[in-house]
């Protein structure tokens, strides 16, 4: 089995800080989600993951953006980039970087679920022939991609994987497992078009997207759940997993 080779201490630069694991689940209604799956260079397979996680073959990343109209923090849009991976037997995405346009949402998502999100403009525009995502930070564009020629899918055809967010926690530096639940009402799949990606801006210097595979646009409720597990980043999940919160 290939395992990640990145130094967790280096990966932790800019990681979120969580004071406790006792977060209540949060249901967000009417969320518009764009997710784009893209293969990356084979040589990148292990370099961007901590030793706890295994790369997929071929290695891949996903960009995911949410436009949320109602939340305890008001409306917000966020986008994040994850490396697709396995934690033990499970499919996961390792969060490398993200942006959000609402400081209160940034704080809430960081403290509650370990999302490290920098301030940025996240512009997700869904249309009938194209959905476009543009992300800008510090005056520079860090992502520009689109879903083109959408075709309707059934809600049950969609697939989302849980996130592993590296954060400073009461247990130390840990991968926080966020098993977001999607209740999809409408879904479309289209051809992904990647126009620009600043890997360094997403804390992935050197990462090369090579082959965009599919873009998915979904509308429906998203629930950020109470936390159940965290995992040490330096050892495999079989030995490094820890129950937290309401896990039994």
């Amino acid at each position: 089995m290939l395992t990640g080779s990145a130094d967790p201490g280096v990966l932790a630069a800019g990681a979120a800080t969580m004071k406790s694991f006792d977060v209540e689940s949060l249901r967000l209604e009417g969320v518009e989600t764009l997710q784009v799956f893209c293969e990356t260079r084979r040589a990148d397979a292990e370099a961007f993951l901590p030793p706890a996680l295994h790369p997929t073959l071929p290695p891949a990343l996903t960009w995911t953006a949410h436009r949320v109209n109602e939340s305890p923090w008001g409306p917000f849009s966020m986008a994040h980039c994850r490396i697709e991976c396995r934690s033990g037997l499970r499919q996961r995405g390792f969060l490398r970087g993200g942006f959000v346009d609402n400081p209160e949402a940034a704080a809430g998502l960081s403290e509650g679920w370990g999302y490290a999100l920098a301030p940025g403009q996240v512009d997700l525009q869904a249309g009938y022939h194209e959905t476009r995502l543009r992300v800008e930070a510090s005056g520079a564009q860090v992502l520009d991609l689109s879903l083109e020629d959408p075709a309707v899918l059934r809600p049950q055809d969609t697939h989302f994987v849980a996130s592993m967010n590296l954060a400073h926690t009461p247990n130390g530096l840990r991968l926080v497992q966020v098993e977001a639940e999607f209740e999809v009402e409408r879904a479309e799949r289209g051809r992904p078009q990647l126009r620009g990606f600043d890997a360094e801006g997403w804390h992935c210097p050197g990462l090369e997207p090579t082959h965009p595979v599919a873009a998915l646009l979904a509308r429906g409720a998203v629930t950020l759940p109470a936390l159940r597990f965290v995992c040490r980043p330096d050892v495999l999940a079989f030995t490094g997993s820890e129950k937290v919160g309401g896990a039994n």
Binding site: M1, G88, R189, V213
Partner: peptide, 29 residues
Amino acid sequence: FGLMNAHLLFTREAYPSTAYQSLGNLAPP
């Protein structure tokens, strides 16, 4: 074997499609 199987990249994970309704696990752990 189950571990190797779980590490495969199944089509549904990369490419949402009506044609692949399950992940296709060959050997559940």
